[in-house]
Design a protein around this nucleic acid. Structure first.
Lengths: 226, 226, 226, 226
DNA sequence: CATGAATGAGGGTTCATTCAT
DNA sequence: TATGAATGAACCCTCATTCAT
């Protein structure tokens, strides 16, 4: 599937349609690992099992390849969350938990999450791509989450907070986990707490809803993760 | 301050000792702005007001310069917080607020915060630096914050939570703001909510302590998500 | 005529025999327009309505294609002038005028004239072709013209001049017009005098025969192109 | 002086100012010999005795180098002829002879003449340069020669001819000789008549003034070059 | 110490040529 | 026979690094 050299010659024709995807996969993996600038286009080609020149049959330049990687990886992932929001019926808190977990699984567990790291590292060198990323990924995501907060506040489920600011509190820890995983976390260092990201997310939700302060009033301290 | 070439001869002597620091400052600013790979060593020299060759009198290679920048920027910024922890008397919540605000001011408002972005981008290409960063920055910071949580829990101020996991919830939003500021936020795009980072931090603290859920002040526990 | 890809299947059979010529035509046009090195072989194929690979079925390399273009374009255009010389009866001056006009029409008005430009540009890179060109085109042409001069001198029609040197005076202006037309003249710049090449040739003949100097003696100053 | 490698190391500093000229000379020679496209920039550098990178310290691209070659070679050669025209007193015929001979010596005997060949070959690929060449070289030259003709006609020395058209007749043979010399003439072929370009020019002048036709009437047929 | 001219390995990209279909 | 995907050698240009001054 991703074996370097050309395996049997009879497969060539069949590969033709898979090539773009194979190249995108290779590029994503390497860009995440080494950064965009530090990845040589020949490496991408080699990882996809083709020669340098072949890469340029499918993408006219390294930068266009980068854009294609972003489009392909993030393009459709946004609309899905939106749909969930629209069809959800129960309390917003439930939806938020589901969204956070889903996000972690989609970004934290797949190389697509590494794109965030790339964007952070290269945004200033590629303003055009940064703008694309903001328009296609960041803005829709934030808007959707803000809408969840807004509805919760409107229904009285949530305290009255600024939805836009709350979104960043919401996002922060998950983003942190994702970014960490693809940079320092990938260095082979043994980082105690990051061993269990799901637990962090669970606690994040628990704290978000109930707060950190002890409330002697009623609940006798149902903390998460004893 | 940054006048290139030859100023008055008397100033030169004075400069000589400042050179290493001037070079590190220049390098830090550029690495943060453009990334390590995309910064040309000649640019660094020019920004420090010296010639290309001079740079190599102080640092044997671009990579060593990079390491020096990181080392220099990270050194000993940690101890201060530790002291504050030891001498603090009031509730831990107060200390946490002070620490978050302090952190934002020190990282968000100074170029040193850009180091986080650099580390994120280059950690995998410089594992030794990453290890250094973990040992000198991440671990101490996390340990200190964990200690704050731990004390709060012990005193009954906080609910019983896993301190290590809580640290990441705590850190996430601030880190997010800092990283954003040095990458996408620097692209000139207009990003609504990020216009007021202090408000985000304030809300972060508010939510952290009191939770998002509406609590009719005594009510029988409307906790979300058991 | 130049419809690419697959026309009707019946036309294809017919085309097969025309292919070599179509390829040569396409190559000639492009070599004249852009030069040999700057013309991509795929362009030649595309202009001939075939694929890149097909070109190599007919010509083993771009260089061989170039040689074939030259050979094909130059073949046997010389003999005709020769015949004219042999059967001509009147004064040599008349013949010269006819030859010059004929030459201009054949070279100046057809893409074949561009070959001269190509030869000039590429002769040193393709010495064998240059030799071929000298043998097949330059020498016969010059010899024929020299013969015209020689006869004119022998019959007393012309002053006694060195025929070989005279040939170059004869050729110069026409060559100049042809070359210009295919290089600078094709750049869209507005070049006053070159708007009327025929007038230049007419004047060339007039000057050649009667000279530029005013001769009060007898003929009452029959200048060309008042 | 033009020995490839770096001779003695002490000369380096001294060479610095000579470098641009050395590079231009090398580039001119190679462009004339092989054409612009077919000359590798590394070849130019090697011929100038420097490395590839050094070339780019002086000229930002191969194309800019090309432009510099043209400017440097042709820039000032035009005005000089003009001066001669202004201060000349005797008959225009004398001036024309002088100009033609001068031109041949300046273009035919120096590599600068090869630029004409380059322009011919590359004009269509570099319209900007072609425009420059027309403005700076062709137009001034033609205008000057037309002026000579015009004065001769006005004074009665010459027959009434169209000056602009006459210029092309005048130029043609010289141009032909120059171009030939740098293309086919440089292939090592033995080309009889071209062995003596000065003779061709002399005959060109003789024919131009007196014409080719035998004129029994007055002067007893003083032909040039028996 | 400081300079900046010079180097040359290396990276992105092109394109003549091949070959499986 | 025709195709066009694939190759890989070259080419232009950059830039980290060196070194003579």
């Amino acid at each position: 599937m991703s074996s370097p050299s050309h395996a049997s010659p009879s497969q060539r024709q069949r590969r033709k349609e898979a090539r773009p995807q194979e190249l995108l996969d290779a590029a994503l993996a390497l860009f995440v690992e080494k950064g965009f600038a530090a990845t040589r286009s020949e490496e991408v080609a080699a990882r996809a099992g083709v020669s340098k020149g072949t890469l340029y049959l499918y993408y006219p330049s390294k930068e266009e390849l980068f854009k294609a990687v972003i489009r392909e990886s993030l393009g459709s992932k946004i609309a899905e969350g939106r749909e969930e929001l629209d069809k959800h019926q129960g309390p917003m808190a439930e939806l938020l938990v589901w969204l956070m977990q889903e996000w972690w699984m989609r970004l934290g567990q797949t190389p697509a999450g590494g794109i965030m790291k790339i964007m952070l590292a290269e945004a200033r060198n590629f303003p055009e791509i940064a703008a694309f990323y903001v328009d296609e990924v960041i803005d829709p995501s934030c808007n959707m989450l803000a809408e969840v907060i807004r509805r919760g506040v409107a229904s009285g489920e949530f305290r009255p907070v600024d939805p836009d600011a709350a979104v960043h509190v919401l996002i922060g820890p998950v983003l942190h986990l994702v970014l960490h995983q693809y940079s320092i976390g990938a260095c082979g260092l043994d980082l105690g707490p990051k061993k269990d990201p799901e637990a962090v997310i669970a606690l994040h939700m628990d704290l978000l809803f109930k707060g950190l302060l002890n409330r002697p009033d009623h609940e006798g301290g149902s903390a998460a993760h004893a």
